[in-house]
Design a binder for these strands. Structure first.
Length: 510
DNA sequence: CTTAGGG
DNA sequence: CCCTAAG
């Protein structure tokens, strides 16, 4: 139908050899199921991987050596397993809904945001790198875990929806200034301080902790003269406003994820803690609390914490005359930097999955982050299908909690995509796709197995394959991350060998 | 835009 | 995961 044709068009458009006369997916599926156990794609393409006897014969026809090689390879690789076609639909829903689906089972409707588009946006968004100085690669240079880069703080964040183990990519910079501020977590820390009677509501500490991104600035500071410790209870932080754009058809879960991602991105680098004492910002980080007056046991000290945009100062001058473009007026409070950002949630996923249970890998598709300044003034192309949600207008509901900071996500500063480790099912999908398509056609791999996974680019897939091959070669003890079944890794090696050989073969023939 | 590789 | 030189 419509979807199918569009998809077909997509495929045919490719300049991939052998695809010229390719049958539509539906056909492929059919032949696939019919020839159980055979890795089809029989379009006469040389790229097609067909490991049934026929193809072996075919190969052997070219050279005896080839034949033997093939046999070796085949004996090793279980390519011919009659597995279902796997397509990773969208990790946005992570393991839950995700997974595999028959090609035919999932209508190939046009994607709301094409991979390419997404990519383009990403590229636009990432013009500048803030990559930290490369750390010395101890020993081997193969880094399987790209996140190990210096930029992220080890997840001590405290989002309610964040999984315990999952470490979110928080950038590591001096998020807080050495002494005066309570350590990370966007909230309080010092246990000794905290377990004092200062807490207003019992049991609320946890709540406030997990809602650190909320909107209120706490301000009570009392001095415990006995031990000279300053007790602080920061109810919550007020963060810059957030502006989110998401399709009305998106699920609540995806909204949550979108917001979460926005917050994460913001906290990742764009913010720093500011301290307000009696309405005045405390700038000198080296002064002691005593010197500053924070320690005074004064009810009126009016101490406040705030999260402010790290780049605010740098940015403000050039934009001073732009506020008119903002869909909302800047509150103008000292403690808040009104910035905005538009997030395009990926797509509305038919499958509704409780977002709470799986967050990390589900963090909404690649959200192209663009400053609404730019967006608002240019076009409303998206307004037709996406609902604008001016957070401030929603009131103090859940949405009002959404902070927003354009600076940190601003294209100018480039935002590294969040790390999204491949799940085993994704790996399987990838492996299967490569088994049949080969290692030199990442775009096709993407289209076939990760069409719906907007956050997986073909480059990602290529990279993943690279690491997979590496992983498969090293000892299991050296592997990290969710363990990939050895069987799958074996397939990786087999497929890699197979296609490598194939390549050489082709090269030799030319 | 895709690939292929280095970083 | 990013960046880029080559196609």
């Amino acid at each position: 139908m419509n979807g199918e044709s569009s998809h077909a068009r997509k495929i045919f458009k490719g300049k991939v050899e052998g695809l010229t006369e390719r049958k539509p997916e539906a056909e492929l599926v059919k032949s696939s199921s019919i020839e159980s156990g055979t890795l089809l794609v029989k379009d006469g393409s040389e790229d097609a991987m067909d490991l049934d006897a026929g193809s072996i014969e075919h190969a052997s026809a070219e050279s005896n050596v080839k034949a033997s090689l093939f046999k070796d390879c085949i004996g090793l690789c279980p390519f011919s397993r009659p597995c279902a076609d796997v397509e990773v639909v969208s990790r946005d829903d992570d393991g839950n809904s995700s997974g595999c689906s028959q090609y035919g089972a999932m209508p190939k409707t046009s994607r709301p945001l094409s991979y390419t588009e997404t990519r383009r946006m990403s590229n636009l968004t990432a013009s500048r790198h803030w990559r930290a100085a490369p750390i010395s690669k101890s020993g081997g240079s193969f880094r399987t875990d790209w996140k190990t880069k210096p930029r992220f703080r080890n997840g001590r964040t405290s989002y309610s929806c964040q999984r315990s183990q999952k470490i979110f990519p928080f950038k590591k910079r001096k998020f807080f200034d050495q002494s005066t501020l309570p350590p990370s977590d966007g909230a309080f820390h010092c246990e000794d301080i905290f377990n004092s009677s200062n807490k207003r509501t019992n049991g609320n500490d946890m709540v406030s902790a997990t809602e650190a991104s909320s909107s209120v600035t706490g301000q009570h500071a009392s001095l415990d003269s006995r031990d000279c410790n300053v007790k602080l209870s920061i109810k919550s932080f007020k963060v810059p406003e957030l502006f989110i754009e998401i399709p009305a058809t998106a699920t609540v879960g995806s909204l949550k994820r979108t917001v979460m991602e926005a917050i994460t991105a913001i906290l990742g680098d764009g913010l720093h803690v500011g301290i307000l004492l009696q309405g005045k910002k405390v700038r000198d980080d080296n002064k002691t609390l005593l010197q500053t007056g924070i320690s005074e046991d004064d009810k009126h000290s009016n101490l406040g914490f705030m999260l402010e945009s790290r780049h605010a100062k740098m940015m403000s001058p050039p934009h001073t005359k732009n506020p008119s473009n903002l869909p909302f007026s800047a509150p103008g409070g000292i403690t808040r930097h009104t910035t905005s950002l538009m997030l395009q949630a990926g797509i509305s996923h038919a499958s509704s999955v409780p977002a709470e249970t799986n967050f990390s890998s589900s963090v909404g598709s690649d959200l192209g982050a663009v400053c609404s300044l730019a967006k608002a003034s240019t076009t409303d192309k998206m307004s037709d299908s996406r609902a604008l949600v001016p957070v401030p207008a929603i009131g103090r509901g859940a949405l009002s909690v959404v902070p927003f900071n354009c600076k940190s996500m601003h294209p100018e500063f480039g935002q590294r995509r969040i790390r999204r480790p491949f799940t085993v099912s994704e790996v399987e999908a990838l492996v299967q796709a490569v088994e049949r398509l080969g290692t030199g056609r990442w775009r096709d791999v993407k289209l076939h197995a990760f069409d719906k996974a907007n956050h997986r680019t073909y480059v990602d897939l290529k990279d993943k394959w690279k690491t997979l091959v590496h992983t498969a070669r090293i000892s299991p003890q050296q592997r990290r991350g969710e363990p990939v079944p050895q069987e799958v890794l074996d397939r990786v090696l087999a497929a890699h060998a197979y296609w490598s050989y194939r390549r050489q073969l082709v090269k030799a023939e030319v």
